[in-house]
Amino acid sequence: MYYRFSNTVIGFLNLFTLLASIPIIGGGLWMAKSSTTCESFLQTPLLVIGFIVLIISLAGFIGACFNVAWALWLYLLVMLLLIGALLSFTIFGFVVTSPGGGVNVNGHVYKEYHLQDYSPWLKKRVKDPNYWRTIRSCLLGSNTCSKLASWTPLDYLQSDMSPIQSGCCKPPTSCNYAEMTTVPQDPDCYRWNNAAAYLCYGCDSCKAGVLENMRDDWHKLSVLNVVVLVFLISIYSIGCCAFRNSRRSETDHPYGENRMSKVRPRWDYYWWRWWRDHRDRLY
């Protein structure tokens, strides 16, 4: 019964992931019907992840519990591709999000963020007008900047801000609006507008604040991906044992020493036998 242990483990693990894929797919479908702009970013990834997990789990469950070798073979193949894709995505995430971070502001608790400090791939992404238009609508709908409307000058000195609040809800601290100056100022100083619908949503500092949030979330996701990779590789190893057990069970012979597996002719056996018989008749 020991050789069945790997099949049982794979069966239970895939039953668990099969049930877990249902709320993932449901969440993606719910977001598809939602009119909130921000939720549309996660809609497609959730649906794709949900259906992939569903298919893999179903193939692994059938193959392990019913000794279907081809289902386990499909399961292991897709698992291998999934592990490779997740590994590539994790490495890419660490590389892309390594540059960045905020700059301390003298006399203030919060930090400010500069677009040039981030990776070229992220900058190209956030500079896309269509992409930024969607992000801007999301920021306006989140009322992030409205929380600062009641702040006093003392609050700006003693209170911290999120990257988006620092970049989108106020002009750069270095801006000088009190008097005329011939010293060149940050271009964001001229993009600033007091109107609630504009503020600094068109500033590079706002884009940098969004990238900082994205960078922080991506770092957390990359750490989670490493944990998931270890889990998937462990399941894949057990799945290989289950696949071997399923192939052996097809011979209808028990395990043990000095037992020979049932001989299964290759696909070309009968074709070669037919050709040899006809050749013998001719000669």
Results as ranks from 00 to 15, higher is better:
Met79Phe: 04
Ile233Thr: 08
Val263Pro: 02
Asn213Ala: 08
Tyr131Lys: 13
Lys147Phe: 05
Tyr198Lys: 15
Ser205Glu: 04
Lys123Phe: 03
Met31Glu: 05
Leu54Ser: 07
Leu115Thr: 02
Lys147His: 15
Met31His: 04
Gly63Glu: 00
Glu257Thr: 07
Ile10Ser: 09
Trp132Asp: 02
Tyr3Trp: 05
Asn106Pro: 05
Phe92Glu: 01
Ala208Asn: 00
Ser261His: 14
Asp160Trp: 03
Phe5Met: 12
Leu19Asn: 03
Gln185Ile: 04
Tyr110Asn: 04
Thr37Gln: 13
Val226Phe: 08
Gly141Leu: 01
Asp280Glu: 10
Phe92Val: 12
Asp117Asn: 15
Leu18Gly: 14
Gly84Tyr: 04
Gly50Leu: 12
Tyr255Phe: 03
Ile238His: 02
Arg259Glu: 09
Pro254Gln: 01
Val95Thr: 04
Pro163Ser: 00
Asp280His: 13
Thr8Trp: 10
Glu179Arg: 11
Tyr2Phe: 06
Arg273Thr: 13
Gly167Met: 01
Leu86Pro: 06
Val103Arg: 12
Asn258Glu: 02
Arg273Leu: 05
Ala208Trp: 00
Ser146Met: 12
Phe66Cys: 13
Gln116Phe: 03
Thr8Ile: 14
Lys127Ser: 06
Trp275Glu: 06
Val263Tyr: 14
Leu74Trp: 02
Ser34Ala: 13
Glu257Cys: 11
Ile22Thr: 10
Thr173Ala: 07
Gln43Glu: 07
Leu199Ala: 09
Gly50Asn: 08
Ser6Arg: 08
Leu140Tyr: 11
Cys200Glu: 01
Lys124Gln: 14
Ala59Asp: 01
Leu139Tyr: 07
Cys38Tyr: 06
Ser162Val: 11
Ser237Met: 09
Leu29Asn: 05
Gln185Val: 07
Asn176Val: 14
Leu224His: 08
Ile10Asn: 10
Gln43Lys: 12
Leu87Ser: 09
Asp252Thr: 12
Tyr156Arg: 12
Trp30Ile: 07
Ala20Phe: 09
Lys170His: 11
Cys168Trp: 00
Gly256Met: 05
Arg215Ser: 15
Trp272His: 14
Ser246Trp: 04
Glu179Asp: 04
Pro172Cys: 02
Val183Pro: 02
Gly93Gln: 08
Leu80Asn: 11
His108Asp: 02
Ala64Leu: 05
Tyr75Glu: 03
Ser234Thr: 12
Ala242Pro: 11
Gly27Asn: 10
Gly100Lys: 03
Gln165Ile: 09
Leu58Arg: 07
Pro153Thr: 01
Ser21Lys: 03
Phe231Gly: 12
Arg264Asp: 05
Arg264Trp: 09
Tyr190Trp: 04
Trp132Met: 09
Tyr110Phe: 07
Tyr283Arg: 15
Ala197Gln: 10
Pro184Thr: 02
Ile164Asn: 00
Glu212Asp: 08
Arg247His: 12
Asn245Cys: 07
Arg215Asn: 13
Trp272Met: 14
Gly256Lys: 14
Ala242Asp: 07
Trp192Glu: 01
Val48Asp: 00
Ala32Trp: 11
Glu257Phe: 10
Leu224Gly: 15
Gly60Trp: 02
